[in-house]
Design a protein around this nucleic acid. Structure first.
Lengths: 193, 193, 193, 193
DNA sequence: CATGAATGAGCCTTCATTCAT
DNA sequence: AATGAATGAAGGCTCATTCAT
């Protein structure tokens, strides 16, 4: 079986702890060694878990990858939801700045990881799944933009996400100074059309 | 040796043809099957060349990757140079539109390839090499922007490149309609900042 | 990694059995087919073990070679220790004869193996390690000779070992008759100098 | 064809020069890098000859090896013949010393080469050929010993050759001081029985 | 359930040899 | 003859996955 879904719901506490350890180990391996270092033995070892246990919870390598992608997406969406609430009464430029700062902080923490997960998300065909779930980065942004009167809010949400991601990703190794402000400039320019 | 440079400069005609065939095959393999399908046997087979011949010219798998990255970069830079000349007398918005259209066309041709080469460029540590060469995408853009009176033209060039790349990359699978115009909006917004 | 040391100490019984099988197979392959037949696939196959298992214990081909060299050295040193005890009360000529007979028997069992291991010991840079360990062929001989009042016992021990090895090695295919006595003659001549 | 004999007699001068260059290159490669560095491409390159030319003169890799073995044997036999003449009127101990010194000098020049050629001589089954030719190291020694009244001169010649070779080979990296004298001691001891 | 030894397909790379030029 | 590009069998090694304990 080469499925991507989990083998079992983690019903017990120990199970959940093991799964979490595996996923954190996977993130560390990817951040430190890139895709080529990502193998089930290394992940299990770093998680302090036997390779057999890893396969108890994940049907295969790709399932670990997929679970990590979903976990990171969920984390970011939670942060985004919080930020959006705190943003409700701000004028658009300040609101955008806040959201951009959140994105910068998120990608800065583990830049390699973010890049790799993007690529793998596409390879595994998870984009649509992730994109279309109701509670989604794009979904949240779409509502935010619609509430501010932006036209074509869904397209705008996607474009802004891509614009932001691209600028962060590229600038992280080159000119991280003032990055948020540069991104806000582009984003506001886009929105004002 | 795990070097990344070529093993020999192709002196005879046959040599050059073999090398070109290998690189084109590498591009096709990456576009069609992704990173995981990229192996020296597959590349040699698709190139219609024996595995031994591949290793006559490339000291290893990564060297093929690096050569492909350099080739694609050179191609794009050549196209960019042409476009920049044709752009000399246009007002900024039209000039930007033209350049963006070029970038969109370039990435649209082989979207997976472009994404993978980006990632691999980082893994192989070629970004710096590519970025600092005088004949470089960023270098050309920097001069263009400086000529138009843009402040911090080097930073702006990098930001625009990343912005454009990110938006194209993300939109290609989702909303390719009108993409160039959307990107121009963001770019001009950034420039007017 | 191209290390020469073991990857893991065999903890379970199965592990130890696998390692032993690999080393015995390596000896057989070398004796039967020479250096050119010595490859990891052949060794694993003859050991009745998968190639993956071989690499669980040995980080590479050379590590198998090194382990075999150490094993054979340890075996011979154990035999030598026993013989030296049994020799304590004998006059020198008889003692020497006994030791020479031991060496002849040892090399006769697998003459090709002994020759190849000698060469490989040098290639892998193990001579020094082997020579300077306290429990060592040369070390034991040195003590034996010193106890018999021989001058420069360390040099003498080395010379005798080489003399004996050379004569056995060369004579095995030509004139094995009476070999021990011929060697004793040379050795006693050297000692009486 | 996997023959070991030469493909053609070097009739012209250039041919002979090419063959000599290949054999000298082979010796250098073996001395510097050992058996594992000995491959036809490396030998041809070091000889400054194309790989095609190498195969013009030698039917295969083993044939190069065999030719080198024969060449080195012939060299040593020539030196030995000269030394034996100069030795005719000397008393035995001085004669032996002279011959031993010759052997030491010969093996000292390229110790790794000598060792490897020994091993390869056996693998290729050349010992008998080399040993039984009338003009041979052992043959010359046999006559020398017979002339001095030694019993079983053929066996003694072989034993002495092996004894000497073993002692030199082993001592070269350890205690080369005074080596000739130590060997003479063993050899004279053997001869006096 | 947990463990980790074992498996073997698959990929990277070398090098002896051939042959078109 | 000389050249060196091309070939492909062979061998080193990894790692996803299974399964006996």
């Amino acid at each position: 079986m080469n499925a991507i879904t989990l083998r079992k719901r983690p019903s017990q506490q120990r199970s959940a702890a093991t799964m979490a350890a595996v996923l954190e180990a996977a993130a560390q391996v990817l951040e430190a060694g890139g895709l080529s270092a990502f193998n089930t033995n290394a992940v299990a070892a770093r998680a302090g878990v036997s390779i057999g246990s890893l396969y108890q919870y994940f049907p295969g390598k790709d399932a670990v990858m997929a679970a990590l992608i979903r976990l990171e997406a969920a984390r970011f969406e939670a942060e985004l939801a919080t930020a959006l609430e705190a943003t409700a009464s701000l004028p658009l430029p300040q609101a955008v700045e806040r959201l951009v700062a959140l994105a910068v902080a998120s990608q800065t923490a583990r830049p390699n990881l973010a890049r790799i997960l993007d690529l793998e998300e596409r390879r595994l065909g998870l984009e649509i799944e992730v994109t279309q779930r109701s509670q989604t980065t794009v979904g949240q942004l779409t509502q935010f933009l619609a509430g501010r009167g932006v036209r074509d809010p869904q397209i705008a949400a996607g474009d802004l996400q891509n614009l932001v991601r691209g600028m962060i990703d590229g600038a992280l190794h080159a000119e991280p100074n003032d990055l948020t402000r540069r991104i806000v400039r582009a984003a506001m320019g886009y929105l004002r059309g």
